[in-house]
Design a protein around this nucleic acid. Structure first.
Lengths: 165, 165
DNA sequence: ACACCGTGTTTCAAATTTGAACAACAGGAG
DNA sequence: CTCCTGTTGTTCAAATTTGAAACACGGTGT
């Protein structure tokens, strides 16, 4: 079931992969810097606040939050501890499941988020959104949406019906 | 020169940004895992080998290499030290500039790279390339190419001619 | 030759990330 | 009720990353 000769990337594919890698790292780096400078938050911390602010009741279970952020559970534990220390978030135990822990955003968390959001959105525009035409944006949203969708469902090996060819 | 009311992202833009963030993290995570499991390399280390293998003479200056990998110089110093310890790379001083340091790939580095490449390419296909149609790939290559291009030229503030629409 | 500023790398301490091991509990079968 | 298996979060040590400071040198003006 292995190919002696792997299917290398052609020029088109290589270009796409290279662009993806570069854009990914550069955008990440830029946003990290912007958030740190303007609001004293790491991108991870900012995303925690965004997810909590979006969630009903401003709270989410640790595991659910970790999944949304695409980060490890231990990594999230660390960041929540930091944010708790900063007073932007607090932990609350789950009524229906003693093991469960809710992370909930505080008023001060909302404040910080409201303060940081405009600059962050502007940075996202400058780095990505406003660089592209609406058509490009549509195509990227669709394509990368598929990519993310597939990877979320733990598909490591190729699907059954589309094995070879 | 600041807007009281920031231009928030509309649904289309938000979807694109969300997809970009998710795809970015998920792909990164998947490749990191694949390389570590199959070849005992981190993605950063793998990219170092790729860049050196691509370079004439199999060698690059530290700064040049750091720029291509989009990483910090100190971070590169660390990784090159690790790779040197593993015998995949070695340091060589630059003839024309005593300060300069070349990182050069070794025969063993080539071997490891040849061993790791097929599996990595296959993983890249599974995660990104083969998920998309050729048209989508073209659009993404073009769009993200522009994004990367702009960010490489240290443009923090908006350009002069395209300020306010 | 000398003082100076900019460049190329490394060093260093601190922050972050990760996976494995652990502790506590939920849910169901016997 | 009791045993098993799977979850949920945290802890822990080790690896990695980062920016600032330290170093060593190149190039220029005087």
């Amino acid at each position: 079931m292995d190919m002696r000769e792997p299917r290398w990337l052609d020029d088109q594919e290589k270009a796409a992969w290279l662009a993806f890698l570069s854009a990914t790292n550069l955008v990440s780096r830029r946003l990290e810097q912007q958030l740190k400078d303007d609001a004293g938050l790491s991108h991870t911390q900012y995303e925690v606040l965004v997810q909590l602010a979006d969630a009903p009741g401003g709270a989410l279970r640790m595991t659910e939050l970790a999944d949304r952020l695409v980060t490890s559970k231990s990594g999230l534990t660390y960041q929540i501890t930091q944010l708790e220390r900063a007073g932007l978030v607090f932990r609350r135990s789950c009524p229906s499941d003693v093991r469960g822990v809710f992370a909930e955003i505080t008023d001060q968390g909302w404040e910080v988020l409201r303060f940081a959001a405009p600059g962050h959105v502007e940075a996202v525009r400058e780095a990505l959104i406003d660089v592209l035409t609406p058509e490009q944006l549509t195509h990227i949203a669709e394509g990368l949406g598929q990519v993310a969708g597939r990877l979320r469902c733990g598909r490591t090996s190729g699907g059954p019906s589309s094995g070879t060819q």
